[in-house]
Simulated assay, not measured.
Amino acid sequence: METQDSIGDFFRGVETPGMIDWTTMPTYNTVMALAVGAALVGLVLFFRALHADPAEVSVTGWSLNFGVLGLILTVTGLHMTLTWPFAAGGFAFDNIIFGEPSLALGVLLLAAAVYLWSKREVGVTVREVARDSRPMTIFVVGLGLALFAIALAGVVYQLFAAPPQEPISGFFGEWAIIEAFFISALYTAIGVGALLTPFATGRLARGLDGGVVTSIIGWCWAVTGAIWLLFAALNFYSHIGLVVNTM
Rank of each mutant, 00 (worst) to 15 (best):
Gln4Val: 03
Asp5Gly: 11
Asp5Pro: 01
Ser6Cys: 05
Ile7Arg: 13
Asp9Val: 00
Phe10Gly: 00
Phe11Arg: 07
Glu15Cys: 11
Pro17Arg: 02
Asp21Gln: 06
Trp22Cys: 03
Thr23Phe: 06
Tyr28Asn: 14
Asn29Asp: 10
Thr30Asn: 15
Met32Leu: 09
Met32Pro: 03
Met32Ser: 12
Ala35Arg: 04
Gly37Gln: 09
Gly42Ser: 09
Leu43Pro: 00
Val44Ser: 07
Val44His: 05
Leu50Cys: 05
Leu50Arg: 05
Asp53Ala: 10
Ala55Ile: 01
Glu56Val: 02
Ser58Pro: 05
Val59Thr: 13
Gly61Tyr: 06
Leu64Ile: 15
Phe66Ser: 01
Thr74Lys: 02
Leu78Pro: 02
Met80Ser: 10
Pro85Gln: 06
Phe86Leu: 10
Ala87Arg: 12
Ala88Thr: 00
Ala88Ile: 03
Phe91Leu: 15
Ala92Gln: 12
Asn95Ser: 07
Ile96Ala: 14
Phe98Val: 09
Gly99Pro: 04
Glu100Pro: 09
Glu100Cys: 14
Pro101Thr: 03
Gly106Asp: 04
Val107Ile: 14
Val107Trp: 08
Leu108Arg: 00
Leu109Lys: 06
Leu109Trp: 00
Ala112Lys: 07
Ala112Pro: 09
Ala112Arg: 08
Val114Leu: 15
Ser118Gln: 09
Ser118Tyr: 07
Lys119Met: 12
Glu121Trp: 11
Val122Ile: 13
Gly123Trp: 06
Val124Phe: 06
Val124Ala: 09
Val126Met: 12
Val129Glu: 08
Ala130Ile: 05
Arg131Leu: 10
Arg134Lys: 11
Ile138Gly: 14
Ile138Leu: 15
Ile138Cys: 10
Val140Leu: 12
Gly142Ser: 09
Gly142Thr: 10
Leu145Ile: 14
Leu145Cys: 12
Ala146Leu: 15
Ala149Phe: 12
Ile150His: 04
Ala151Met: 07
Ala151Trp: 00
Ala153Asp: 12
Gly154Asn: 07
Leu159Thr: 08
Ala161Glu: 08
Pro164Asn: 03
Glu166Gln: 15
Ser169Ile: 11
Ser169Thr: 15
Phe171Glu: 09
Phe172Tyr: 14
Gly173Phe: 03
Gly173Ile: 03
Glu174Cys: 10
Ala176Arg: 13
Phe181His: 07
Ser184Glu: 04
Leu186Gln: 07
Thr188Val: 12
Gly191Val: 01
Gly193Glu: 04
Leu195Gln: 06
Pro198Leu: 06
Gly202Glu: 04
Gly202His: 04
Arg203Gln: 11
Gly207Tyr: 02
Leu208Ala: 13
Leu208Thr: 00
Ile216Cys: 08
Gly218Asn: 05
Ala222Ser: 14
Ala226Asn: 08
Ile227Asn: 04
Ile227Trp: 03
Trp228Ala: 10
Leu229Arg: 08
Leu229Trp: 13
Phe231Arg: 13
Asn235Ser: 11
Leu242Arg: 09
